[in-house]
C-alpha cells in the first residue's frame, strides 16, 4: 500500500485500495460506519442514507463516494449520529415495526442500529400504512410491514439468483414497494425458492423462512450478545 492511499476516519488513518469506497475501506479496516442498505456482496444502493458522513466538511454517502488520499471523513460525531437517529425514526414511523413480537428481534439490523444510535422513541407520528402479509409460498412468508426499502432482496434475486423475483417499484412513501414477479403479485406464483440468496438477505423481518421461527430464543441472538458496532467491526 503506497503512502498516499490513506484517509482520515474520525481522526484515524485508514488505508485504502484505489477504487474502494469509503465504506469498503472502513470495513476492511474493521471500522464501523452505520448502514442498512449496504451489503459487501452487492453494488452500493445509496438509499438508506444511514452511512452519511462528512467528507472534508461536506455530506456524502460513504457507500458510494470513493476513498481518496487525504480525505478527512467524519463518521461517529454527535452531529451525524443525530441525523442517523432521525433517519431511523423516519424508517420506524414509515412502516409498522413491533419489535417485541417480531421474529427478527435481536437479529434485526434496523433494531440493532437504533440501539446503537441511542434511539429511545420513534418521535414522529406513525403513518400506520396498510401493508399486506404474503404467506402464499410454501417455505417463506413476507411481512411487508417491516420493509425499509433497502433493495437488498432485489439485488440478491437479480444478481445472485438470476431470477428477478423482487423489483422495487412505485413512487414516494405511499407508492414505493417491492413488486413480486407474478401476475397475481403473490410470492407463491413466482419461482422463488427458500434456497435463494434472496431468502436470507433481508436485514429486517420481511423475508421469513417458515417452520424455523424462534429456533434461537430471544436473548441469545446476534445483537443480544454484542452491539452492531462490535459485530460489524469484527467482520
Amino acid at each position: 500500500m503506497s503512502e498516499q492511499n490513506i484517509f482520515l476516519l474520525d481522526g484515524e488513518e485508514i488505508a485504502f485500495a484505489p477504487g474502494q469506497t469509503i465504506m469498503q475501506a472502513a470495513q476492511s479496516a474493521h471500522k464501523y460506519i452505520p448502514h442498512l442498505c449496504w451489503h459487501p456482496e452487492f453494488k452500493p444502493h445509496g438509499s438508506c442514507k444511514l452511512c452519511t458522513v462528512k467528507i472534508n466538511g461536506r455530506f456524502g454517502s460513504s457507500c458510494t463516494v470513493e476513498a481518496a488520499a487525504g480525505q478527512n471523513v467524519e463518521n461517529r460525531t454527535a452531529e451525524l449520529d443525530d441525523k442517523r437517529r432521525t433517519l431511523l425514526q423516519l424508517l420506524f414511523v414509515e412502516g409498522n415495526h413491533f419489535c417485541p413480537s417480531c421474529e427478527k428481534s435481536g437479529d434485526c439490523l434496523l433494531q440493532a442500529t437504533a440501539y446503537e444510535m441511542g434511539m429511545m422513541t420513534p418521535h414522529f407520528d406513525h403513518f400506520y400504512p396498510d401493508r399486506p402479509v404474503d404467506a402464499s409460498h410454501p417455505d417463506v412468508m413476507l411481512d411487508f410491514n417491516r420493509c425499509i426499502l433497502c433493495s437488498l432482496c432485489v439485488q440478491a434475486s437479480e444478481l445472485a439468483d438470476k431470477k428477478n423475483v423482487f423489483v422495487m417499484g412505485g413512487r414516494g412513501m405511499r407508492g414505493r414497494k417491492i413488486i413480486l414477479n407474478s401476475e397475481s403479485g403473490k410470492l407463491g406464483d413466482t419461482d422463488f425458492s427458500v434456497d435463494d440468496r434472496a431468502a436470507s438477505i433481508c436485514p429486517v423481518g420481511v423475508i421469513l423462512k417458515k417452520r424455523v421461527g424462534f429456533v434461537v430464543p430471544y436473548g441469545e441472538r446476534t445483537y443480544d450478545k454484542a452491539p452492531v458496532s462490535a459485530v460489524e467491526a469484527a467482520k
Partner: peptide, 21 residues
C-alpha cells in the same frame, strides 16, 4: 414535494411526508 418525491432515499421519501403532515 411529498407527492413528487421518488421515494428512493429515506430523508426525502419520509421527510417530505412529515413536513406535509
Amino acid at each position: 414535494f411529498a407527492h413528487e418525491s421518488c421515494g428512493f432515499c429515506t430523508p426525502c421519501r419520509v421527510g417530505t411526508q412529515i413536513v406535509a403532515q
